[in-house]
Simulated scan of single mutants.
Amino acid sequence: MKYQNYRASDFAADEDFIKWVQQPTEEMDAFWDAYLQEHPWQRTAVQEARKMVLHLSEDSWPAADTALDEVWEQLTAARQRDTEVGEESAVVVALEPAVPNKYALLWAAAAAALLLVSSFLYYQQRETTVTYATAAGERLHLRLPDSSTVVLNANSTLVLPAKWPKDAERTVHLEGQAFFSVTHKHNNQKFIVETADGLAVEVLGTEFSVSSKGNQQQVILESGKVRLKVPGEGEEQQVEMQPGELVEVTEQRHIIQKKVKPALYTAWKNTDLVLENITLEEVGQMLQHSYGYSVTITDPALKHQRITAYLDSNTPGHILSTLSETLQVEVQTQHKSITISSN
C-alpha cells in the first residue's frame, strides 16, 4: 500500500486523501478506518494532515493558475525540511520518493493543502516540544530518535523535545499509561520519564510500564533496572527496582513495592493475547490493571480455575467471551465493573 511510509506532508498532498477530508463518503471512511487499524503508527500523521487540509480549506484559494508552480516549489522545500526534522523527530520512517502529477489534482485543492504543508512544517520547526495523544480505544506505537520504542495506551499523552539531545538527559513527560523499551547509549545517557505529579523514572536501558492516572502512580519493571524519585513534603524519596517488581505511589505518598507478574499489567500493549495456564483470579487482575475494570469473582473456587488460550484480538470483550465459553462461567458487565459467577 502506497500510504505505508507517508508523513503528514505526503497525506496532505494526496488527491484521494484531500477528497476524503473535504467530501467524505461511507466508502472513503471505511477505507481509512481499515488503514488506521492496520497501521496504527500512522494515526498521528493522518490527524496532522487532516488539520492541515481542513484549516486551509477555510481560507481563500489562490487567484491564478500561475501560482501553482510556486506552490510545488514550496512543497519541495517543505519536504526537504520535513526530512531534516524527521532525523530528530519521534517517528522515524523512510520516505518513499514519489513525483506526483500536479495536473492530476484539482489545482485549488492541491495549492491549498501544499501551502499549508509549508507553513505547518516551518511552524513545527520552531516548536520546542512534540506532543502525541491518544483517544479512547486507541494505541499508538512510537519509535524515538534514539531507537527507543513506546506504546502509548488509550487516553494518554506523551510530550518530548522536538530536538533530541545528544548528550543531555533524555526526558519525556507522560500523562496516562505507556510501555517503554529504552535503548542503552554508550555514553550512559539517562532516560527519564516524568509524570504530572512529579514522579521521575530514571533508567539507562530497560523495559517498563508507567501509569499516571489521577492520584495513582504505578511502575512495573520487566527487565533491567530503574530508579524512582518520589517527591514528598520533606526529602525526595528514592526507590531502586528489580525486574518483576511493581511500585505504586499512593495519594498520601506511601510507597508500595512488591513482586508481580509483569505480563498481567502490560497485556494492553499487545494486539493479541496468550493465556498460558493462568488462574481466573490472575485474568481478573489483568483486566483490572491493564484495562481499568473492577472484577468480582463470587465463587472462591472459581478463582483457582485455570485457562490456556490464544486470543487474536486483545480486547476486554473478547477476553470475557473466551472465559465464558471455556470455563463455562457467567459474566456480567456494567460500566467498568465485571462480575464472574458459576454458570
Rank of each mutant, 00 (worst) to 15 (best):
R7F: 13
A8Y: 05
D10S: 10
A12I: 09
A12F: 07
D16M: 14
Q22P: 14
M28F: 15
R43F: 12
V46T: 14
Q47V: 11
K51T: 10
P62C: 04
L68C: 01
Q74N: 11
T83W: 02
V85E: 04
G86Q: 02
A90G: 05
E96R: 15
P100H: 04
N101R: 14
Y103C: 07
A113F: 11
E127G: 15
E127C: 15
V130K: 02
A133Y: 14
R139W: 08
A154G: 09
N155M: 10
A162M: 10
P165N: 11
V172K: 01
L174R: 05
Q177I: 01
E207K: 08
S212M: 02
S212T: 02
Q216L: 06
L228M: 03
L228G: 00
Q237H: 02
Q238D: 09
E240W: 04
G244L: 06
E245G: 08
L246K: 15
E248T: 12
T250K: 15
I256F: 10
V260G: 09
K261G: 04
L273V: 03
L275Q: 05
L275A: 01
E276P: 04
N277G: 08
Y291K: 00
G292Q: 00
I297S: 02
T308S: 07
Y310C: 12
S321D: 08
V329G: 08
V329H: 11
E330I: 07
K336I: 06
